[in-house]
């Protein structure tokens, strides 16, 4: 059987169809099996070279992409902005074209500016995978979140499932991508957080807005807890971390008082004791480590489906 994604690049969930998302999730199932084999490697991309170009710090996304690439037998080159000519004033297009001149087939890029990967896809001849662009999109995270939910409930789509995204929605690319992805798969989505951290027009994306955490948790089947991104906050959005935790932190006591078992997710890195307490993060209700495990399979599926004979330039 042969199937193809409707896109040449993975720039955001916004540009994917429901069929694309389902194809990626079902392909990830096969790669998850590969990861459980005694030899966790397949030769599918053995003549492909992939550059991981990270203009922003990342630990797990970069590691997850690198592992996915290596499990597919691709050749991998890593590039980080801090040790590059970017600090000498080189432009994004020049930097990437220089990398491509060394015969690289695909570029996985994280960049602090929203739209950077779209810009690159228009100007360079290579397949681009967005690994996070500013506060815009983080498509592979949304795909692995959706995958983790469908596999947790053992369902093919998310029709009727209620997901709440809690925390710093304003600075979060994970939230935006998750909203698009969950909607495509039929889930209902709510965002919850202090007024200052919820974008003004978020309801235009057809999401419910709730400022009371207890009400939000009572409504949902799954709660995706986002990290408070202190590094992105140039002004104070709430009086203190302690107050944020009191209002929007999830602890065991709160979860137990809900009268139903909800699933807890977190894209990481966790600020233990801020958005969730340790006993919640390590409890049976949390699928945080499954998310990390699924991340490699999802990224293998994305790389596999986007490779193949190139339709772009050389």
């Amino acid at each position: 059987m042969e199937k193809k994604l409707s896109v040449d690049h993975l720039l955001g969930i916004k540009y994917l169809t429901k069929g694309d998302i389902e194809l990626i999730l079902s392909t990830a199932d096969y790669f998850k099996k590969v990861l459980q084999q005694p030899i966790r490697k397949v030769p599918s991309l053995q003549d492909t070279t992939i550059a991981n170009v990270f203009f922003e710090n990342s630990t797990r996304t970069r590691l997850s992409f690198e592992l996915a690439e290596k499990r597919l037998s691709a050749d991998v080159v890593n590039f980080s902005a801090s040790s590059s000519s970017v600090s000498k004033g080189e432009t994004l297009i020049d930097t990437v074209n220089n990398i491509l001149a060394m015969k690289v087939d695909m570029v996985v890029m994280r960049h602090p500016n929203p739209g950077a990967s779209m810009f690159l896809a228009k100007h360079v001849k290579s397949k681009i995978i967005n690994a996070g662009d500013g506060a815009h999109e983080h498509p592979t995270q949304a795909l692995l979140d959706a995958y983790s939910i469908t596999r947790k409930f053992d369902v093919p789509h998310l029709k009727g499932k209620k997901v709440v995204i809690v925390g710093d929605i304003l600075h979060s690319r994970v939230a935006i991508s998750n909203i698009y992805c969950l909607h495509r798969l039929g889930a209902e989505v709510m965002v919850c957080g202090p007024t200052t951290l919820i974008p003004k027009h978020i309801s235009a994306l057809n999401v419910k807005v709730e400022h009371n955490l207890r009400k939000a948790l009572e409504w949902c089947d799954v709660a995706n807890m986002l990290r408070i991104q202190l590094e992105r906050q140039d002004i104070k959005y709430f009086p203190s971390l302690r107050e944020y935790t009191m209002m929007y932190g999830v602890n065991k006591q709160l979860l137990d008082s809900l009268g139903k078992e909800i699933t807890i997710m977190h894209p990481g890195p966790i600020n233990r004791g801020v958005e969730i307490t340790s006993d919640v993060a390590d409890s049976g209700q949390s699928i945080i480590l499954q998310q990390v495990e699924n991340g490699v399979a999802i990224r293998m599926a994305v790389l596999y489906l986007l490779s193949g004979k190139s339709t772009i330039g050389g």
């Binding site: 193809k4 590969v34 599918s44 003549d47 490779s307 193949g308 004979k309």
Partner: peptide, 17 residues
């Protein structure tokens, strides 16, 4: 599927069984 030698010569990737 993942071990085939014709992967890079195809327009569309094969979906495994």
């Amino acid at each position: 599927t993942f071990f085939r030698d014709d992967f890079r010569t195809r327009e569309t990737p094969r979906i495994p069984d």
